[in-house]
Nucleic acid binder design. Structure first.
Length: 493
DNA sequence: AAAAAAC
């Protein structure tokens, strides 16, 4: 069955063909005719199912008739994150190229003036995150009385992020006679209530989750004794796996920053993405990643859901996600559009990681296959400070505080095993041969660094737990480091 | 406990 049987117009079909698609996905095949008929739709579907095109395509045809008036957009699409909103806007541009639809993107972090200007000109398609939309609304820059089609996308994520009151507020301000398209991956009670309240006899369309935790993503779990060994293991994976491009997920923004810095120091082609960055930066990094100007993206969960980058070969969880569902969303960034992908989760032997891994296995219903740490010759190159760190720092000194002896998981009784290096580079025989290295070799570190490190007192007491063995917390103080400056400082407020 | 989102 082709797109041509769904009732879309010629110019829209041409744009679809030009984009390289010939067959609709199940949700597109089911939703598009319903939307064209003017019916409300309740779509239970995740990203990666072709959900976005299932509403953008028919919307383009519906909006092709009629014209927009100043400050009265004709359709509104609500998205939970700015990146998703921008992505939907791209979708409209791609498929609407043969139409003359005007569009505005209302998201936070960008200045109001341009957005207001666009609103004043009148827009057919308004794509927004709830906060910024309400902001404009309350300033009187925007009327919702002309809305013909409302799309609430990723409703369950809106719920997670506390946007439901905002969504309700917006829905209440939209006139009765409009069409609503409502999408959610799951249907918790609050969302069900919303659908009853705001949808009018909707056509319910449910498609199974794309490929997420199934066949075309090969999943692996690597267990290391200590948190601080994770980065080294990550580097080993990056060098031995055939990583075309990959996303590295951390649980905290600070860990994203540190991991990004660390990878950059080691010569990897990497960018970072998290909510503390300026919006312009966020979009720019995403663009670079999509266009393959950078190979790796170190990200918070802002990138976990919905981001549609067609061809991501690897996902690495440097932190085990603390919500099991996030695991599915994260690894769902790879193996998209029928491609294969690999997902590696690096877990430490800590109470938290153990707990999170169990939760993931319980949810997916299968044990994550344990994999050994790959042999990584590159990291055996003499890096300044490395040997010193090895011989003088007994691993116990840096172990996170909860790393005190206790029964480890019955699966792997490995308490007697020697620590860091053993774990980071063992088992040469398990990996047949290291594959081609996609990443540049780390550059030899500048002499300066070595000198600096020599006289630096070993950090006392607790360090930040995700430090790795090459982490340099302070630079630029010369050789005389007052001891108090070495005490740990909490970076986040 | 964190992340995201409004100035």
């Amino acid at each position: 069955m082709g797109f041509d049987l769904l009732g879309l117009s010629e110019p829209t079909l041409t744009a679809v063909t030009d984009a390289g698609y010939s067959e609709p996905t199940p949700i597109q095949a089911q939703a598009i005719p319903q939307v064209l008929m003017g019916r409300d739709v309740l779509g239970i579907a995740q990203t990666g199912t072709g959900k976005t095109a299932s509403f953008t395509l028919p919307m383009i045809d519906i909006l092709a008739h009629g014209r927009a008036r100043a400050r009265m957009p004709r359709s509104l699409i609500l998205e939970p994150t700015r990146e998703l909103a921008a992505q939907v806007a791209e979708n409209f541009e791609k498929y609407g190229k043969n139409h003359k639809l005007s569009m505005a993107l209302l998201i936070g972090g960008v200045n109001f003036a341009d957005q207001e200007k666009a609103l004043d000109r009148g827009v057919d398609v308004l794509i927004a995150t709830p906060g910024r939309l309400l902001d404009h609304f309350e300033r009187g820059k925007l009327l919702l009385t002309g809305i013909e089609i409302l799309v609430v996308d990723e409703a369950d994520r809106m719920l997670d992020m506390g946007f439901i009151p905002d969504v309700e507020k917006i829905c209440e301000r939209i006139p009765r006679q409009h069409q609503t398209l409502f999408f959610s991956a799951t249907m918790p009670p609050v969302i069900q209530r919303l659908t009853k309240q705001f949808l009018n006899d909707p056509k319910k369309i449910e498609v199974s989750r794309p490929s997420s935790s199934s066949t075309n993503i090969s999943q692996h779990l690597i267990e290391v004794p200590m948190v601080k060994q994770k980065r080294r293991v990550l580097r080993a994976l990056l060098r031995t796996e055939d990583v075309k491009n990959g996303i590295i997920f951390c649980n905290r923004k600070t860990s994203v920053k540190e991991t990004y810095e660390s990878l950059k120091r080691h010569g990897f082609s990497v960018g970072q993405l998290h909510g503390d960055m300026a919006q312009s930066e966020r979009l720019e990094i995403l663009r670079q990643f999509k266009e393959n100007e950078i190979k790796l993206l170190c990200a918070s969960d802002v990138a976990a859901r919905g981001l549609d980058i067609a061809d991501v070969s690897h996902v690495f969880n440097l932190d085990v996600p603390s919500h099991a569902e996030d695991y599915v969303h994260r690894i769902g960034r790879t193996g998209r559009a029928g491609r294969t992908g690999s997902a590696f989760t690096i877990a430490a032997k800590t109470r938290d990681d153990d707990k999170y891994v169990s939760a993931i296995e319980k949810m997916t219903g299968l044990a994550l296959p344990r994999t050994d740490v790959p042999d990584d010759k590159a990291d055996d190159e003499p890096l300044p400070g490395k040997s010193r760190a090895r011989s003088e720092k007994p691993e116990a000194a840096d172990a996170p505080s909860e790393e005190k002896p206790r029964a480890s998981r019955s699966r792997r009784p490995r308490k007697d095993e020697a620590p860091a290096e053993k774990a980071a580079a063992p088992k040469a025989e398990t990996k047949a041969e290291p594959k081609a290295e996609p990443q540049p070799r780390p550059q030899p570190q500048p002499e300066k660094r070595a000198e600096k490190k020599v006289d630096k007192p070993a950090p006392r007491g607790r360090r930040r737990r995700d430090d790795d063995d090459d982490f340099e917390p302070v630079v630029g103080m010369g050789d005389h480091m007052p001891a108090f400056l070495m005490t740990p400082v909490k970076l986040s407020k």
